[in-house]
Simulated scan of single mutants.
Amino acid sequence: MELEELLENARRNEALLRRLQAYELQLLSCQTWYDFLTLLLEGLPAQFDLDAATLKVCDPEGDLKASMLQSLDLEQAVLLNQLEFQGRVPMIEAGPVSPPPPWASGLPLPLMRNDVYLGQLRLYSANPDRFQAGMATDFMQHLAAVVAACLFMVKQSEETARQALTDPLTGAENRRGFERAYQREWARGQRQYHVFAMILIDLDHFKQVNDVHGHGTGDRALKALCRTLKSIMRPTDHIGRLGGEEFALLVPGCQPDQLPSVAGRVQEAIRDMRVENDTGKIVPLTASGSYLCVTPRPHQQLALDQVTEHLDTYLYEAKRNGRNQFIRAEQ
Rank of each mutant, 00 (worst) to 15 (best):
K230Y: 10
R320K: 14
M1W: 03
E42F: 04
L111W: 08
G189K: 05
I327V: 14
E159A: 12
L143R: 06
P96I: 00
M140I: 03
R162F: 13
F139D: 10
H142A: 13
I327F: 10
V266T: 01
L118P: 03
V209H: 04
T170Y: 02
F48Q: 11
A52Q: 13
L17M: 06
L200G: 01
T54R: 14
L165I: 03
A22M: 04
N321F: 01
Y316R: 10
S290E: 06
Y34K: 08
P108L: 00
G106Q: 10
Q331E: 15
D211E: 11
E179A: 10
C58P: 01
E246T: 09
T236Q: 12
A172G: 13
N324T: 02
C226E: 07
E158V: 14
G62T: 04
N277T: 00
E2H: 07
V266W: 00
K207I: 02
R241T: 05
F326K: 05
F247V: 13
L50K: 08
Q82W: 13
Q31C: 07
V294H: 07
M233Q: 08
N13I: 02
G240R: 02
G289V: 00
S71V: 04
V209L: 07
D73N: 15
E2L: 05
L242R: 01
H215D: 02
R19I: 00
V262R: 11
Y117K: 01
L229F: 10
L7A: 14
T313Q: 11
T286L: 05
E75A: 12
R175L: 07
L121G: 06
Y193E: 13
S71T: 09
H205L: 09
N9W: 08
Q26M: 09
T137M: 03
L74K: 01
K65G: 10
D73R: 05
R175A: 02
L40G: 00
T295I: 01
Y291N: 04
R320Q: 14
T217Y: 12
A133R: 11
Y124V: 02
E158I: 08
A133I: 06
P168S: 06
K155A: 14
V251R: 03
M140E: 12
S67M: 09
L259P: 06
M153F: 08
L55I: 11
E317S: 12
S105H: 05
D59H: 00
L7T: 13
Q301E: 14
V57A: 10
N9H: 12
R320I: 01
Q31W: 02
L259S: 03
F48P: 13
V97K: 14
T308I: 15
I282L: 11
E14H: 09
Y117P: 04
L39S: 13
L292S: 11
Q47K: 15
Q163F: 08
M233W: 00
C254W: 06
Q47F: 05
C150I: 09
P102N: 05
A197C: 02
L27E: 04
Y291M: 12
F326V: 07
D129W: 04
Q70R: 15
